[in-house]
Amino acid sequence: MMATTTPGGWRLLLLRGWLPVTLVALWWTLSAGSEALYFPPLQEILTTLVDEWILGPRWRSDLLPSLANFTIGFGTSVLLGTALGVLLGMSPVMRALFAPVLTFFRSLPSPALIPIVLGILGLGAGMNVSLIVLGAVWPILLNTIDGVRSVDTQLREMVRSYRLSRRQIITHVVLPSAGPQIFAGYRIGLQIAIILIVVSEMVGATHGLGYYVLESQQLFMITQTWVGTILLGIIGYLLTLIFLRIERRVLRWQIRMRQATGAS
């Protein structure tokens, strides 16, 4: 492996920070006092953001429900996808039986489900959560199946010769061994879930961040449209950050192993 020297501390901060800081500063100064209809001053955007979303009531009426729906939807996808994935991964017959259906849904662009889910559930949280689950569960499910299937043959034989119980096999062998691949599935699922919470609120809700940003655009509230977009960006970033933290914690044995052996 190539020796990668990463500068430490404040030098790294400087290296990584100069470009984003410059860009924001440029935006701030160039837009200051801007009369252009579509490009309000950054200062105005940020003040509105703080006033409406942090000091104002919107964090309770729009932000929290969005986050709750997202958490329920993504959480359900994770639990359902992992459980079914382990089940199907361990049973070749079931897997073959459902393969065409799974392949179809994995490739299906989930927003195509909007009219049907809306038709069945109408506007509201139920619709939002369902759409997330229907979109995010497939990559999780299929990655889990793949991960479970590729548990090493010799490991399987070891497990059989020591007569481990089914529960032991799943918790101590199958899940950890498939872990990296399962988390790869979660990562794709997360990306889709973040897209879908926004989409589902744009088309199937009467509040929430997605609703807010589209509504602002349609009402020609330009500053608010900017605010909503920036907020969605920040939230997408934070959710991903939290997820990556959790991933690193759960898979830390693997990271340490890689560091210790230099293997991939």
Binding site: L12, I195, T225, G228, G236, Y237
Partner: peptide
Amino acid sequence: EHSTWFLIEFLKPIPGVALIPL
């Protein structure tokens, strides 16, 4: 790599659909 790191890490998770209205 270092200069673009934060920019990319920030832009990456932004859902593309969020930009539709703007």
